[in-house]
Amino acid sequence: MSVLKITKENFEKEVMQSDKPILLDFWASWCGPCKMVGPVVEQVAVETAEVARVGKINVDEEQELAQAFKVMSIPTLVVMKEGKVVKSTVGVQSKQTLLSMLQ
C-alpha cells in the first residue's frame, strides 16, 4: 500500500472514516527535514499496510487542514484513531518511533 495524498476533499473519507489508525505526515516540498523523514514514512506505510494507513498532507496546498491541526512547524506527524488525534510529534523521527506511535 502506498502513501495516500490527503486533501480537504478526501479527508473525511480517508481519515475520519478510516477503520484503521492513520499516520498523517504534514510536509512541504521546500522543507529539508520533511525530505529526510519522507522515505521513513514510506517504509512505515509498507510495513504497516495490514494494520494502519499512512497519508501525507502538503501544508502549502492544504492550509486549512494544517490550521485545523495547529501545525506550527514541519514535519508534524499525527496519528489518528476513530477520528481523534491520539499522538503527535514534530521533527524528524526514526522508523521505530513512528511504528510505536501506530501501536
Rank of each mutant, 00 (worst) to 15 (best):
M1Q: 08
M1S: 07
L4H: 04
L4P: 01
I6T: 01
N10E: 05
F11I: 04
F11V: 08
V15H: 11
M16Q: 13
M16A: 12
M16L: 15
Q17D: 08
D19A: 12
L24K: 11
D25N: 13
F26W: 06
F26Q: 09
F26N: 08
W27C: 08
W27P: 11
W27F: 13
A28R: 10
S29F: 02
C31D: 09
C34P: 08
K35E: 06
M36T: 15
M36W: 02
V37L: 04
G38C: 02
V41T: 01
Q43G: 04
Q43K: 11
Q43V: 07
Q43W: 00
Q43Y: 01
Q43C: 01
V44C: 10
A45V: 05
E47W: 07
E47L: 13
E47M: 12
T48D: 05
T48K: 14
A49M: 09
E50H: 11
V51Y: 13
V51R: 15
A52N: 06
A52S: 13
A52P: 09
R53I: 00
G55T: 01
K56R: 13
I57V: 15
I57T: 06
V59H: 06
V59Y: 05
D60P: 05
D60G: 05
D60S: 04
E62R: 10
Q63H: 09
Q63S: 12
Q63F: 11
E64L: 13
A66M: 10
A66F: 10
A66E: 09
A66D: 07
Q67W: 08
Q67Y: 12
K70A: 13
V71S: 06
V71R: 13
V71Q: 08
M72V: 12
M72T: 11
M72E: 10
S73N: 05
I74G: 01
V78A: 03
V78M: 02
V79A: 06
K81W: 03
G83M: 07
G83L: 08
G83D: 11
K84A: 15
K84R: 14
K84E: 15
V85E: 14
K87A: 11
K87Q: 15
S88T: 10
S88L: 10
G91Q: 03
G91N: 04
G91S: 02
V92M: 05
V92N: 02
S94T: 14
K95L: 02
Q96F: 08
T97D: 09
L98C: 05
L99W: 11
S100E: 14
S100C: 05
S100T: 13
M101E: 03
M101V: 04
M101P: 09
M101H: 10
M101Y: 05
Q103A: 15
